[in-house]
C-alpha cells in the first residue's frame, strides 16, 4: 500500500476512516494521508456523525461529568479532581464512591461554605413519577434523623432534572474497606456493631428502616466511630402505608438461613454472624472478604441458629456483652468454627 499524498482514498474509505472502521493497515495508510491532506479533511468534516457508537456515547446516562465510568483508573481520577465543576450550589471536588444507585462526590456547598457529600441518583433509578415521589419521601424521612452515629442528610432536591441529596462528609474509611484487609479484632467489631445497633434502633423508633445496611454503608470517622450512611434509601414505616408495602414484605422475606446456604454453595468462606432477641436481629455474614449486615425480624434468624448450633453456643457470651437497646450484635470470625 502506498501513502502517496496525491492519491486520495475513495470517499467510502474516508468515511470508514472517520468512524474508525478500517482495519489496521488501511487505517494506517489513510491516517498518513489525512495528516497532510486538507481536501480529505474537509470531506471528513462534512460527513454526518451518523454512527451508533457516537450516538450511544453522546446520549449516555452520565452527563454530570465527562467520564464518570472512567474514574476507575487513577489516571482519570486525578483528572476529575483537578477540574472545577459546579452543580447548583455545590462545587464538586472529587468522586468518593459509586454504587448501584449513583455517584457520591465530596463537594463544597458554596452558600454555606461547608464540605459535604453529594449523592447523585442515576437517571435510570427514578424513572417514574412514583419513584421520584418515593425518593423524596424517603430522603425527607432520613433528613429528620438526628443521631451521632448517623450521617446527617442536609438537602434533597433536583437540579436540572438530576436528583440528588447532600449529606455530612465523613473523613475516614468504611467498614467494608476495613474488612477488606481481614477480620477486625472481636472487641473492635463488637463496639462498632453496638454503635450501629444504637443508630438503627433509634432510626426504627423514628419510623425509618434503612433497608440497605451493609459495611460499605457504615463509615468510620477518623476516631474509628461508625456513622451509618445512605438512610436516603430508607423506607418509612407506619406513615404512608401504600408506599411502604414492598419494604415491609421484603423485611419479612429475609431468610438468613438460605443466604448462608447460598454462600456455602458458592464454596466461599462465610465469615461472621451476629443476632439476638427482643424481636429483632442483626446478622452479618461475609463472602470472601466482604461482610454484610442485615436487618432481620424475629423468627427468621432462628434458622441460622438451627443450622449451626455449635457456632451459636460459641458466640453466646459475646452476644450478652454487646446487648443494647433491644438489639444484640457482634461480629466474629466463624470461618474456623464452621469449617470444622
Amino acid at each position: 500500500m502506498t501513502s502517496d499524498p496525491s492519491l486520495h482514498p475513495d470517499k467510502k474509505e474516508l468515511a470508514a476512516f472517520g468512524l474508525g472502521r478500517l482495519d489496521d493497515a488501511a487505517h494506517e495508510r489513510v491516517e498518513q494521508h489525512i495528516v497532510e491532506c486538507e481536501t480529505c479533511c474537509e470531506f471528513l468534516q462534512g460527513l454526518p456523525n451518523a454512527d451508533r457508537v457516537v450516538s450511544l456515547l453522546r446520549n449516555s446516562d452520565a452527563p454530570l461529568v465527562d467520564e464518570p465510568t472512567a474514574a476507575e483508573t487513577d489516571h482519570s481520577r486525578q483528572r476529575i479532581g483537578t477540574r472545577i465543576r459546579y452543580f447548583g450550589d455545590y462545587e464538586l471536588l472529587e468522586e468518593i464512591a459509586r454504587g448501584g444507585m449513583g455517584l457520591v462526590y465530596k463537594a463544597r456547598q458554596v452558600s454555606l461554605e461547608r464540605i459535604v457529600a453529594v449523592k447523585m441518583i442515576l437517571s435510570g433509578e427514578l424513572a417514574s413519577e412514583e419513584d421520584k415521589r418515593r425518593f423524596q419521601i424517603e430522603a425527607q424521612a432520613a433528613a429528620e434523623l438526628d443521631h451521632p452515629n448517623i450521617v446527617p442528610v442536609y438537602e434533597v432536591g433536583d437540579f436540572d432534572g438530576q436528583h440528588y441529596f447532600s449529606m455530612g462528609f465523613v473523613a475516614g474509611t468504611s467498614l467494608a474497606a476495613e474488612l477488606a484487609d481481614g477480620p477486625l479484632p472481636a472487641a473492635k467489631s463488637a463496639e462498632i456493631i453496638r454503635q450501629v445497633a444504637q443508630a438503627v434502633h433509634y432510626a426504627h423508633g423514628q419510623g425509618v428502616i434503612h433497608r440497605d445496611l451493609k459495611p460499605s454503608n457504615i463509615l468510620l470517622d477518623t476516631s474509628g466511630n461508625p456513622r451509618v450512611t445512605d438512610f436516603g434509601l430508607a423506607k418509612r414505616i407506619n406513615r404512608d402505608a401504600t408506599l411502604t408495602t414492598t419494604g415491609q414484605i421484603h423485611l419479612n422475606e429475609i431468610e438468613t438461613g438460605r443466604l448462608l446456604q447460598t454462600f456455602k454453595g458458592h464454596g466461599n468462606p462465610v465469615t461472621g454472624s451476629a443476632f439476638s432477641s427482643n424481636g429483632r436481629f442483626l446478622v452479618t455474614c461475609a463472602r470472601d472478604k466482604t461482610a454484610r449486615v442485615w436487618e432481620v425480624e424475629t423468627g427468621k434468624s432462628l434458622r441460622v441458629l438451627d443450622g449451626v448450633p455449635n457456632a451459636v453456643s460459641a458466640f453466646a457470651d459475646d452476644h450478652r456483652r454487646t446487648a443494647c437497646g433491644g438489639w444484640y450484635a457482634c461480629v466474629f470470625d466463624v470461618q474456623s468454627r464452621w469449617q470444622t
Partner: peptide
C-alpha cells in the same frame, strides 16, 4: 465540530479528526 474542537484545543483539524478516528477504532 472538528473545527471547533481544533480551535479550542489549539490543534489542527487534521489532528482532531485523527484523534476521533483512532479512539473509535480502538473502541470497536
Amino acid at each position: 465540530s472538528a473545527a471547533e474542537a481544533a480551535e479550542e484545543l489549539d490543534m489542527t483539524v487534521n489532528a482532531v479528526l485523527i484523534a476521533k478516528s483512532r479512539v473509535l477504532k480502538e473502541l470497536r
